[in-house]
């Protein structure tokens, strides 16, 4: 009986895993173009089929966002406050919305090794820690996804990919206040 229970639980876990998991990471190819890679070996083949008509891997071209290779206020804010004001809400993302965003191409993806980072050294330990703090489990290089605005600039933060789980992100919401408790 208990064996059946374990089997059933594992089956449900696999089903839910398949239904909600998506592994993605970003890279630069040898032609110096930015790409977001969807790895369906660990996830759902149907996702890759939907995105690029391939079963195992999708390589989605990602155009560099406007004013992102720059030490602007926005890019400073993103890299210095990742994990502090840019926080994981712990809500698991609706995978269809994530796929729609990726398919539209109107997204910006970054991790702690991002070329857009003009604040920290390349692959700095501190920045890696800030990004890693977004995920409940250890992930080497979590990928954070933002909207891209119609003018090509980086928009609102949307998701963080922590291994095979994608969470919803928010800005300036990870705040605790004791004011209302006291009065």
């Amino acid at each position: 009986m208990s064996l059946i229970r374990v089997f059933l639980f594992s089956f449900i876990m696999i089903l839910s895993h398949n239904a909600y998991s998506l592994v993605f990471y970003n890279q630069w190819n040898q032609s110096f173009e930015k790409e977001l890679v969807l790895d369906c070996d660990y996830g759902e083949e149907s996702i890759c089929l939907e995105v690029c008509n391939e079963e195992r891997l999708c390589v989605v071209k990602e155009e560099v966002c406007q004013n992102c290779v720059a030490n602007t206020a926005q890019m400073s804010d993103v890299f210095t406050n990742m994990g502090r004001t840019y926080v994981n809400t712990t809500e698991i993302a609706d995978i269809d919305s994530v796929i729609d965003l990726i398919k539209s191409g109107e997204f910006v993806s970054i991790n702690s090794k991002s070329l857009y980072n003009m604040i920290y050294e390349f692959d700095s330990f501190e920045l890696r820690q800030n990004f890693q703090s977004l995920c409940p489990v250890h992930v080497g290089y979590p990928v954070v996804i933002f909207d891209k605005l119609s003018n090509g600039e980086m928009g609102k933060v949307r998701y963080v990919g922590c291994g095979d789980t994608t969470y919803v992100m928010d800005h300036n919401s990870g705040i605790s206040s004791t004011i209302s408790e006291l009065y």
């Binding site: 032609s31 110096f32 173009e33 930015k34 155009e63 560099v64 966002c65 406007q66 004013n67 992102c68 290779v69 720059a70 602007t72 070329l115 857009y116």
Partner: peptide, 14 residues
């Protein structure tokens, strides 16, 4: 050339 994608992301005005 091959640096086009990087150039597009620069804040050229500054």
């Amino acid at each position: 050339n091959q640096y086009y994608s990087i150039f597009k992301g620069l804040e050229i005005e500054n």
